[in-house]
């Protein structure tokens, strides 16, 4: 850990609290959207897009601020870039394969 001055740390703490509040608000929005989704008869696709978008924003906040990813070293980025690529390959290729099947033609 690099040496931080007390003022610097206090500044960071303010940021963490801000992120904390943002996360709580976003959680409330997710739940509200989830409930509205049933009452407003939103299409499933719209519900998924809203739900996942909020989750991605929340995830970015946690990873970026709590896990310090926004000012992390390039080496970590490279590892995570490969991971992200393979993650999406794993998520998407099976489903693409499934949808292009001889039995559905």
């Amino acid at each position: 850990m690099s040496e931080h001055s007390v003022e610097e740390v206090n500044k960071h703490i303010k940021k963490y609290i801000g992120v904390f509040i943002a996360l709580l608000v976003l959680t409330a929005i997710t739940v509200a959207a989830g409930l509205l989704h049933t009452t407003l008869q939103m299409s499933v696709a719209v519900g998924i897009i809203i739900g996942l978008s909020i989750a991605i924003v929340k995830g970015t906040l946690v990873a970026g601020y709590f896990m310090h990813l926004f000012d992390e070293k390039p080496l970590i980025f490279w590892i995570l870039a490969f991971m992200a690529f393979f993650f999406f390959v794993l998520l998407l290729l099976p489903i693409i394969t499934q949808s292009d099947s001889l039995s559905t033609m």
Partner: peptide, 20 residues
């Protein structure tokens, strides 16, 4: 790197479509 995106060549016989 490439080894992650070739796996379904083990599955040609599972009724995969021609495009995939």
């Amino acid at each position: 790197f490439m080894s992650f995106i070739v796996w379904a060549h083990h599955m040609f016989m599972t009724g995969m479509g021609t495009a995939i």
